[in-house]
Structure formats: structure tokens, C-alpha cells
Computed example of a mutant assay.
Amino acid sequence: MTMAAASAETPALRVAVLKFGTVNWELDTISHHGLDAAEGFALDVQGVASSSAAQIAFQGGQADVIVSDWLWVARQRAAGRDMIFIPYSKAVGGLMVPDDSDVQGLADLKGGKIGIAGGPLDKSWLILRAYSEKTLGVDLKAETEQVFGAPPLIFKAALDGDLAGAINFWHFMAKMETAGMRKLIDISDAARDLGLDPETPLLGYVVKGDLLRNDPDLVHGLARASFAAKDILARDDAEWDRLRDHMNARSDAAFEALKAGFRAGIPVSQAIDREAAARMLELMYRLGGADLLGQASTLPDGIFLDPEKPG
């Protein structure tokens, strides 16, 4: 068989992701080490400008895979759209305050501005509100002023001192910590206090059910390649040195923080505890309602890719 013929028989898996998203570090590792080829497919990474652009490409058939949270997938399944979630990361953000701030607890934020990346239905914000209500009897939404914006804008406003506190995605939080801010509370700690399991991966690869039915080896191959890349990134510091130019780390401290943050977000298993996921969805529905989850008031069946059985 010629090389051209072999290449023609290798299916391409079109993955639409944010151009500068952290998932690119994993996708680059997959391609660099030929983990996709070893599983019989070729990654075709398509950089997009926003999550909504990725969703449009995916739903319109221009992409086979996107990265999203499983709560979005639950909403789609409840609306009759057959989508499957493959765990990618359990990393979540936190609430950051200036290092020299007098704020020592959530109650000290009363009357202040909180910057929130992701909008009023941001999952970390909803969890923090629930945590505040449980532990302090305080509704943070009512007691603070919220400022919503894209992660880089919240990052800049926080560093400029325009905010009493800021909730941002984990990689911006890592950079904020090295730039002179401190973590007031980690969202995973708040989730644990609410009876949620912080080991439940929130982010993952999303594929359509048709792809799983028509080519299960391809979908499971993606899952295997993903975890093989994570294994490399978990143990090999040299791999991170290779990726450094793609990480927008402006200092050694930021580089180390990003590396540690990614590693902390690696799921311990490809299996997802459905009971834990159902508890999280129930809380999110109570706080975000149909605006966040549509008709998905309970966990839909078939949302998670079943791990392959040994042998």
C-alpha cells in the first residue's frame, strides 16, 4: 500500500477549539507523539474565536468534536440532541482578591465589586453563591455588585485594583496568583462543602451520538489518546518545556503555576460517578434553572461515554 493510500484511509477527526485554550496543550501532545495515528485517526485542529463559534461549527457539521462542559451537553440531550461527553478536565477556578486586601472571607465582600468571567450563569459563580448561602446565610448576588466580562478583561480589571474580588478560569487564576493576588476560596472546596464531588470532571470533549454508533473505535480512540497525552503531561517536565512557547507564560512562576494547574485538573479515571454528576446538576438547576439547563432538570441517560471494558 502506498503512503498516499494509507493516508486516505486514515479518518480525520475535526476538533474545533478556542485558538488559545489550554486544551491545545493536550492536542499538541497528541499530535507530537503520534497518539492519534496510533489509534488510527488524524487530528485536524480548527482554532475558533469563541465557544459559541465552536458550537455552531459542531452543530452545523463543520466539526466532529468540541470542548464544553457536560452541563451544556445535558441541556442538549434533554432537548433531543444526541451528544456524548468524554471527560477532559476537572479543573475549576476560584475567587481571587488582591494580596494586600483586607478581605479575609466572603462576608467582607459586602458592598464590593466581584468580577466574573463567563456571565451570570457561570458555574463557579453559582457554586460560590450556594456556598455563601449555606455557610453565611448571605446572597452574594444581592450583597455585591457583579461585573461580567471575558477572562482577559476580568484578569486586567482585577490586577488594576478595580475589583474587590474576581472569579476567573483556572489558567487565568494561576496567572493572577503569580501577579500579586491570593486565593480567597477555591471553587472545588466550596463544591465539596456543598456535598458535590470535586473529582467530577466538568470539561470534556463532545461528540455526536451518530459518530459513536458509526465508528465506536474512533471515539474510544480519541478517549485513549487523550488519557495517553495526560499521562505524558502528568509525569514529563520536558514535555512542558517543549510546550512553553504556546502557553503565554510571561514568567517562570506563571509557567510553573500553569503546569501545576493543568496537572491538578487531570481526572483520575475515565469513568464518571453518575450519582455525583446528578447531585451537581440538581444544584445547578436550582440556581440557574432553565436559563442554564433548559429542560435538563435531571441527569439525562447516555450523557457520558462508557469506558471500555478490559479485554
Rank of each mutant, 00 (worst) to 15 (best):
D197I: 02
G115E: 08
G311E: 13
L126F: 02
W170F: 06
Q59T: 14
V65D: 11
A290D: 05
F85S: 07
L163H: 06
M176K: 02
K19M: 06
E143W: 00
A158E: 04
P120W: 06
P198T: 03
K134P: 01
G165E: 12
D245Y: 13
A179E: 07
L35N: 04
G137N: 08
G149H: 08
E9D: 12
D108I: 08
G288P: 08
N24H: 08
L194I: 03
I187R: 04
V65E: 10
E256C: 04
L202D: 07
A191V: 03
A290W: 04
P120L: 09
F58R: 04
F262K: 13
I30M: 10
A79L: 09
L281Q: 02
L243V: 03
A225E: 06
F20E: 11
A150N: 14
G209C: 10
G311K: 09
A225K: 00
A223I: 05
L287Q: 15
A228F: 02
L109E: 12
A249F: 09
D69T: 08
K259R: 15
Q62M: 13
L159G: 04
G209H: 10
K90C: 08
G119K: 10
D108F: 05
S7M: 13
P310D: 15
N168K: 03
G165P: 14
A79Y: 01
A296R: 01
R192M: 13
A91G: 05
S7V: 06
Q146R: 10
M280I: 03
S188E: 14
L35W: 01
D44R: 12
S68L: 05
M1D: 07
A158P: 00
Q76C: 07
T29L: 01
A166R: 04
E239D: 04
R182S: 04
P267E: 08
G221C: 07
A142W: 00
A234K: 10
L18V: 00
L202N: 01
I66F: 00
L283S: 05
A191W: 01
E145L: 07
I56L: 14
R274D: 06
V97Y: 06
P98A: 11
D108H: 07
E39L: 05
A290C: 02
A254L: 02
A78V: 09
G118F: 08
F169A: 10
D215H: 12
G288M: 12
K110P: 03
L184E: 09
W170Q: 06
K230S: 05
G288N: 08
I127A: 11
P201G: 06
F41N: 07
T144H: 02
D197Y: 02
A142M: 06
A38L: 06
L126A: 09
T200N: 04
R192A: 15
Q59F: 11
G119M: 10
P267Q: 12
F227P: 02
M176G: 05
D306M: 10
V67A: 02
D28E: 12
